[in-house]
Design a protein around this nucleic acid. Structure first.
Lengths: 337, 337
DNA sequence: TTGTATGCGTTATCAA
DNA sequence: TTGATAACGCATACAA
């Protein structure tokens, strides 16, 4: 199956390659109607399809961006990705998607290969551990946007949730409904995972604001697989929490699993609020009070910022955008009597 | 930021471009240790990064495939996609993801643009409406795999669920638990959406096998947004179904919504079984009996079939692979007394 | 063991 | 209004 090239079209239409090129790029300014017709005819007679790779080589633009995420299976990722793709679709850009599983090595490889493939920009949910690489891209002014996490010290755009506010929303909502012994459940707290840190920090801060003590034993921070144990222990203590704040959907799932196994009634025995508005929040019994991230807006903005950088390759100022979370009141937190 | 090319490396290392090229492609057979050293030095002194686009132009391979789906937000899609990406990762291939929203026009555009970008193959969840395009690809022996739906008449590989079996699994499970008045809930039945058709067909067939009548009024097939109304009507009849079979996760959600609004107790008032093992099936009350698709296996196989075609560009025989569904017994179907 | 020349399919510059 | 010709960055056959 031989590729049909511009040369073939040119020959058949009896014009030069350059003329065909002009035609394809709609530079009709000086082209006679007749040549146009002839070229058009030749094109569909041969079923000619332009080769973008060749064009990219010349034009230094592939109309392709890379999106590097931890895991496309996470809801946040999927939704952000969808929004990014929508923006790209409008501009006839394509999106290459890569999963790192939060492994810095994979991230490195992807960044390098995608750049070798000359993608026009990169949107990254960063592992945070490839400092040199991030730095290099920033220095070179390579279009780059971080999402979900940022990397301190790297002057790149970042699209984040306002994590402090999210935590405050949760705490305040609980406190206003009469809860005082509030626990928080999170994956392990590691220094480079900014959102977790910020959410915990926000939690403590909000508690303090409300004049409530921060109880270390109410803070469960461990591997997802161990959370159920952690909860078991916590709830076998003399004075278990009256309310739980799950900092993301994964921890929420573990909590729901735990309460199911232990016949803990929500919200009667335990109030529950979480960040990430899971798809079943409305159909679960009780319905789940959550704090939603504006995932689509975030994805859209990420793409827009990236295109801004792609368009004006000149100086561009870093922007750290924090998106406001939304409290969605449902049934897992009730007014205490 | 000027691109650094092989020529620059060659100059600095005092060798020719071809030697550098050899080096990069690890054709060390006849290269002196010294030249190797010099080239290596030059490369990292300049921070040289090869340009894959240029290489692709020459080699007619981009190490990139396209995956065209309806909507990345659907769980099935996301999981299949993840499996595909994993296989690609092993072969240093990249994946371009496109959402069609089941719109044939978008699909057409994507197929054409991706082919123009010279992707090495395409995995498509087809809308089923671009016959000429599919045909053209098949004729040209362009590497192509359909997933989820197949397109009758197009000799391309297809990875599907064994829909008949899935429906039979559901019906038999219900019948064996003492249910006879079984309803089915589906999106609109349109001729080109094979899985829906097959599931309904399988449903009728299984019912017949069990000697049960097929009740037209128990078959709800309508737009997702109207399903709740449909159910309301169905359940206000004299003789509503005792069990419901949701043919996918979307319809399941509507049913759950409906039962919640109407205080219908599952499984006491109504048994429920569905295709697609939703993430909350284990934590919902009751836990949900589902029929799972082997999504990861399907994605993996899709990628493998595609690579098979990519590798041996010669003759290749169409294969329609039907994957077996798995019944996961949980709490939404109980033994009737 | 390494270098020269040519081609991949476009686009861009400049002539004609 | 159109055509030659030279890039783009790399790979490869062949020569040296």
């Amino acid at each position: 199956m031989k590729q049909i090239t511009m040369a073939d079209v040119a020959k058949l239409a009896n014009v030069s390659k350059s003329t065909v090129s002009q035609y394809l790029n709609k530079r009709y300014d000086y082209m006679s109607e007749e040549t146009k017709k002839r070229i058009e005819k030749a094109i569909d007679e041969l079923g000619y399809q332009p080769n973008f790779i060749a064009r990219s080589l010349k034009q230094k633009s592939t109309a392709t961006i890379g999106v590097i995420v931890f895991n496309i299976l996470h809801m946040l990722t999927t939704q952000v990705l969808r929004a990014i793709e929508d923006v790209c679709q409008e501009r006839d850009f394509h999106v290459i998607v890569c999963n790192t599983d939060d492994d810095p090595e994979k991230e490195k490889k992807y960044i390098e290969m995608l750049r070798a493939k000359q993608v026009d920009g990169l949107i990254i949910f960063p592992t945070g551990k490839n400092l040199e690489l991030y730095e290099k891209m920033a220095e070179e002014q390579f279009p780059l946007v971080f999402v979900d996490r940022m990397v301190p010290g790297i002057p790149a755009d970042a699209i984040l949730l306002d994590n402090h506010k999210a935590a405050a929303l949760a705490v305040n909502h609980l406190v206003e409904h009469g809860y005082e012994r509030i626990g928080i459940v999170a994956p392990p707290i590691v220094p480079h995972v900014i959102p977790r840190l910020e959410r915990i920090e926000g939690f403590k801060h909000a508690l303090a604001e409300k004049g409530l003590p921060v109880m270390e034993e109410y803070m469960v921070g461990m591997e997802i697989s161990r959370i159920k144990e952690g909860l078991t222990q916590l709830f076998s203590s003399d004075c278990p929490p009256e309310a739980l704040f799950a900092i993301n959907d994964l921890t929420l799932m573990e909590i729901l699993n735990f309460v199911k196994d232990n016949n803990i009634r929500i919200p009667d025995d335990l109030a529950l609020i979480s960040i990430d508005d899971v798809p079943f929040s409305n159909i679960y019994t009780p319905t789940l009070t959550t704090i939603a991230q504006p995932t689509f807006e975030m994805g859209k903005k990420a793409a827009e910022r990236l295109f801004m950088q792609i368009d004006q390759k000149n100086e561009h100022h870093q922007q750290i955008l924090r998106f406001p979370p939304t409290l969605i009141q449902r049934g897992s937190v009730k007014q205490r009597t």
